[in-house]
Amino acid sequence: MTDKIVDAFTRALVDVDRLAAKQIVQNRGHDASPVKFAEDVVLPALESIGAGWQAGTFALSQVYMAGRICEDLIDQILPPEDPDRKNQPKMAICILSDHHKLGKIIVYSFLRASGFDLADYGVMEVDDLVEQVQKDSIEILLISVLMLPSALKIKAVKQKLDRLRCDVKLIVGGAPFRFDDRLWKTVGADAMCRDASDAVSVIENIMKGMA
């Protein structure tokens, strides 16, 4: 039954059919808590769309719209600050040294639609980012980039955080990392995401290591 719901929800998302997606959320039944619905339906649908983008069967426009629709729907049934949102480490996301926001917006939407909460730092430069991360005691930092020079600056972020003895896990993503699957190690990241839905499993793996 859940598989059929996931399939129908996925279809609604890739067709950018907000009404059909909303209908599925509303029909979820009283015994399905928002968190359980996010885990059982929303996340698998977003993972399937993310995997489809990597394989070339879905387009970035569909990934983006799916994230936005899900984020809105989940916010309605599971508002920010709701105690049911996942017990999680302190996380933040930013764009490094760039004005291309799309990747960050999609990852932010996917994570929030999957029940996570995280700070959105917007566009940051290296020194400001390091200062903010230290000030907020961030444990997991997600950095999105589009351009190669921005990706290479992550190395400086890592070095400065290490120097300050900040115990932060760095997760990176964006075009340069998809075109060179060794680059994330070169810049000193702890993990990379090939698409937005990867971020959920990468964070869950890091959380297991922290437990």
Partner: peptide, 15 residues
């Protein structure tokens, strides 16, 4: 338009 207005708002415009 990706550079003129940003990717996200351009997708919103298209749809």
């Amino acid at each position: 338009p990706v550079m003129q207005m940003g990717f996200d708002r351009y997708f919103d415009l298209m749809y």
